[in-house]
């Protein structure tokens, strides 16, 4: 696999049933792009501006995570607000996703893994 910087996707507002399809397709596009370039899909999602996420939103992120993992990559989350963290914890997803406190850490983790 070639080295390259992870893709960053910045989400904001409410990730609910209306937003979720867009998030899902954006993540799919990033994975497809990586696959076309014959590299693993390392994606970093910025959730610092997301104040709410519902079951449809969680489902979109999980599909993104699964697809990224299939290419040998992953989906890192950072900037998780308190309300969103509670929802992730309630559904055990805080353990499924690699989560980070800052953008730098999330990117570093993705980049280190890529070059390792």
């Amino acid at each position: 696999m070639n080295h390259s910087d992870p893709s960053i996707i910045r989400l904001e507002g409410r990730i609910d049933a209306y937003q979720a399809p867009m998030v899902k397709s954006s993540l799919k596009d990033l994975v497809a792009k990586a696959e076309n370039e014959k590299r693993s899909a390392w994606i970093v999602a910025d959730l610092s501006q997301v104040n709410f996420i519902d079951s449809a939103g969680l489902s979109a992120l999980v599909v993104g995570l699964k697809n990224a993992r299939e290419t040998g990559g992953s989906l890192h989350l950072f900037g998780i607000q308190h309300a969103v963290r509670i929802i992730l914890e309630l559904s055990w997803l805080d353990k499924a996703f690699p989560t980070f406190n800052s953008e730098l850490e999330a990117i570093e983790a993705a980049t280190v893994k890529e070059t390792a």
Partner: peptide, 13 residues
């Protein structure tokens, strides 16, 4: 109080 999940949903991993 809420009873949190102690495992992921089916289909995640």
């Amino acid at each position: 109080r809420m009873l949190k999940a102690n495992g992921p949903a089916l289909g995640i991993m």
